[in-house]
């Protein structure tokens, strides 16, 4: 068994066959996503508690965020999820050209997201809205003084959650780059494509986190007016 198993490209020596290796990889990634879920879950818990504690702070705070930019990033991520899904599809079809193409589009979209995020962060820093001691000093015309302490709590949650999310996007972009290089070298075939599928799971998970972040952070105060 093991003698001819070693001739299969991409099969590690300690697995009996490709099926077992693929199953292990998929389950492994799902379990990893479970840990990611709990990791973000701690911040979602903090969000829930503080939102209930400071409803006004969260309304005012969300006015500081740009719904058009947040919305743009939401669309960018959803499109990138589609292109990632298509990349997985074409890897299953064994179409190398389209695989590389869709992986590249996904990577570009991921980078677009990060660039938009960068400008959002930059704007916050310029307005002294980064919630750290010594940095946080919003202009009273921008944010009424009585809301400033509460909004600070909102802002650290905003920075923690989107920052952690952006970190995952950066890691995802690195993974995509690796996959593109490997795909170009023809490493993936119809039979061996689980790295693409597994990375796709990760990318979709990061998308799901954003699906929750967008309404919770950007849209919370949308109905009360304000914003810019």
């Amino acid at each position: 068994m093991s003698e001819h198993a070693s001739h299969v490209p991409g099969l590690a020596h300690h697995f009996v066959n490709m099926e077992q290796q693929k199953e292990a990889g998929t389950i492994g990634m799902w379990i990893f996503l479970l840990t990611e879920l709990m990791f973000f879950g701690g911040l979602f818990l903090a969000y829930a508690i503080f939102r209930a504690t400071y409803p006004d702070g969260f309304l005012q705070g969300s006015h500081l965020l740009s719904v058009p930019l947040g919305g743009l990033n939401t669309i960018v991520l959803i499109v990138s999820s589609l292109t990632m899904a298509l990349a997985v599809y074409y890897s299953q079809m064994g179409d190398r050209k389209k695989l590389v193409g869709f992986l590249s589009i996904t990577l570009v979209l991921g980078l677009v997201f990060l660039v938009v995020k960068y400008f959002e962060y930059k704007e916050k820093f310029e307005h002294h809205l980064f919630p750290a001691l010594g940095w946080y000093n919003p202009d009273p015309s921008h944010l009424a003084v009585q809301y400033q302490p509460q909004v600070r709590v909102f802002l650290w949650i905003y920075f923690a959650m989107t920052g952690l999310h952006a970190l995952h996007m950066i890691i995802g972009a690195g993974i995509l780059l690796t996959l593109i290089i490997m795909a170009q070298k023809g490493r993936f075939t119809r039979e061996y494509n689980s790295p693409i599928e597994i990375s796709g799971l990760y990318w979709h998970f990061v998308d799901i986190v954003w699906i929750f972040l967008f309404p919770l952070l950007y849209l919370t105060g949308f109905h009360v007016g304000g914003g810019h």
Binding site: L37, M38, G200
Partner: peptide, 30 residues
């Protein structure tokens, strides 16, 4: 996204259990 992009609808029972367990544990904490 989970059902179609992540193929959970077509995946093994084990994968589906893992997804449900994750959501369950998150709900416990919250």
């Amino acid at each position: 996204v989970v059902l179609y992009f992540m193929h959970v609808r077509y995946s093994s029972k084990l994968t589906q259990v893992i997804v449900v367990a994750g959501i369950f544990w998150l709900i416990i904490m919250l």
